[in-house]
C-alpha cells in the first residue's frame, strides 16, 4: 500500500510529518505525499509549524526548504514568502497570525512551481489554519512539523502522523532501533480509559494543577510544577492503593528517575499527561519505569500512520537499505514502514 492510500484508508483529514532528527528524510516524505496527491487528484493543503534550526536562514531570511507544489494546492504561509514563490499564487484570505516573516496568508497555487512555506507560530493558530484550509476544499492537509518544541507538538493538532527516522537517529543499528522504538512507544501512549478521570484530568490540565486521584477522592498538590520538584511531589504520594497523578506540564526523566527510588509507588501509579509530546523521558528510565509496573496515559492520544526510513546519514554512516528497512519494519510492527528511496510501497515483513 502506498503512503497516501494508507492515510486515506485511516480516514485522517490532516497529517503531520515529524522527523526524529535532521536528515531523517522528512522532506522526502512530504514530497512523496504531495506527488501521490497529484496522481490521485487530491486537493492538498500545506503548511509548516516551527523552525528546524535553519528553517529560516538568519542572514537571508529565506524559509527552507522550497517545495514543489502542484496547481490548486492551498498553502498557509507567511506574507514574506509569497514574492519568492516561483508559482503564481492567488491570495485568498488573511489570518491575523503574525510571524517573523509577516502575517500568515491563505493562498492557492494557480500554477505549479516551487514555493517556500512558513506557517503560523503556535498550535492554536495552526489548528485554525488547518480548519480554514479544509474549508477551502482541501481533502488532505499536510503539516510539516519542525524539530523544535512547537513543531514536534504538531501531531497533537492533526488527525494522524507520519514519523521519519533513519540512520541519523543513532550511532549504530542497535541505537537507531532503540531510539525509533522508544519514540514510537511514547507517541503511541494510550488514552485515559476511565471517563471520570478524563474529565477531572482535563480540567486540571486546563488550570495547570497537579492532582492526585485515588479512591479517597481528588487532591490538588500545593506545587506549581513537577519540574524540579520531583521529591516534593513524591512526598505527597502513598503506595497504599492504586492512584493517578495528573501532570499538566512535562513528564521528565528526573520525575520518573526519582519515582524509581520508590518501586512500591511506581507499582501503583498511573501518570496522566495532556498528550504524548509532554513526555520527555529517555529509553532507559522509561523501560525501568514500565518494568516496575508504572503506567502513563494521555488525554489526547496520537495516531501514528506510518514510519519512513532513510538508511543514509549525511555524516557518512549508511546501511544496506533493504536490511535496514526490514530491521525497522520488524521492530516497529504493526506500523507500516516505508523506505521511499527503495519504493513507494511499505516494506513487506
Amino acid at each position: 500500500m502506498r503512503l497516501l492510500e494508507r492515510i486515506e484508508q485511516s480516514g485522517c483529514k490532516s497529517v503531520s510529518v515529524v522527523g526524529l532528527a535532521k536528515n531523517a528524510g522528512k522532506t522526502v516524505a512530504v514530497n512523496t505525499i504531495i506527488r501521490q496527491c497529484v496522481e490521485a487528484g487530491v486537493t492538498l493543503g500545506l503548511s509548516s509549524l516551527g523552525y528546524d534550526g535553519e528553517k529560516i536562514d538568519v542572514l537571508s531570511r529565506l524559509a527552507k526548504p522550497r517545495i514543489f507544489v502542484p496547481e490548486g494546492t492551498i498553502l498557509a504561509t507567511a506574507a514574506d514568502t509569497l514574492p519568492r514563490a516561483a508559482a503564481g499564487l492567488e491570495i485568498l484570505a488573511t489570518t491575523n497570525y503574525i510571524t517573523a516573516l509577516g502575517e500568515v496568508m491563505l493562498v492557492r497555487a494557480r500554477e505549479s512551481g516551487h514555493v517556500e512555506v512558513a506557517g503560523p507560530d503556535s498550535l492554536a493558530e495552526m489548528r485554525h489554519c488547518i480548519a480554514a484550509m479544509q474549508g477551502l476544499g482541501c481533502r488532505l492537509v499536510l503539516v510539516d512539523g519542525a524539530l523544535d518544541r512547537i513543531g514536534s507538538a504538531a501531531p497533537t493538532i492533526t488527525d494522524g502522523t507520519v514519523l521519519a527516522t533513519g540512520a541519523v537517529a543513532g550511532g549504530n543499528m542497535r541505537r537507531i532501533l532503540i531510539r525509533s522504538m522508544h519514540v514510537k512507544a511514547i507517541l503511541s501512549l494510550p488514552g485515559v480509559s476511565d471517563p471520570a478521570l478524563r474529565a477531572t484530568a482535563g480540567a486540571a490540565c486546563q488550570a495547570g494543577q497537579l492532582l492526585v486521584v485515588d479512591s479517597a477522592g481528588v487532591r490538588q498538590l500545593p506545587l506549581i510544577s513537577a519540574i524540579g520538584h520531583a521529591a516534593a511531589v513524591i512526598s505527597h504520594l502513598s503506595p497504599a492503593e492504586p492512584f493517578s497523578l495528573v501532570v499538566p506540564g512535562a513528564i521528565t526523566d528526573s520525575l520518573l528517575g526519582e519515582l524509581l527510588y520508590h518501586p512500591r509507588l511506581v507499582k501503583q501509579i498511573r501518570l496522566v499527561s495532556p498528550d504524548p509530546t509532554h513526555v520527555f523521558v529517555g529509553p532507559e528510565i522509561w523501560q525501568k519505569f514500565l518494568h516496575f509496573g508504572g503506567r502513563v496515559e494521555v488525554l489526547k492520544p496520537i495516531t501514528i500512520l506510518a514510519v519512513t526510513v532513510n538508511p543514509t546519514a549525511p555524516a557518512g554512516k549508511s546501511y544496506a537499505p533493504r536490511e535496514f528497512a526490514l530491521e525497522l519494519a520488524r521492530a516497529l510492527a504493526p506500523l507500516p514502514v516505508y523506505d521511499l528511496f527503495l519504493g513507494e510501497t511499505a516494506v513487506p515483513l
Binding site: G88, L89, E90, I91, L92, A93, R108, R110, E111
Partner: peptide, 22 residues
Amino acid sequence: SPSFYLSDSYSLRLAEYRDKIR
C-alpha cells in the same frame, strides 16, 4: 471574489508567457 491574483487578463504578454511555461 475577495481574493487577489495577478490574472492573465492584466496583460496579453503575461498570458502568453504563462501558456508557454506550462
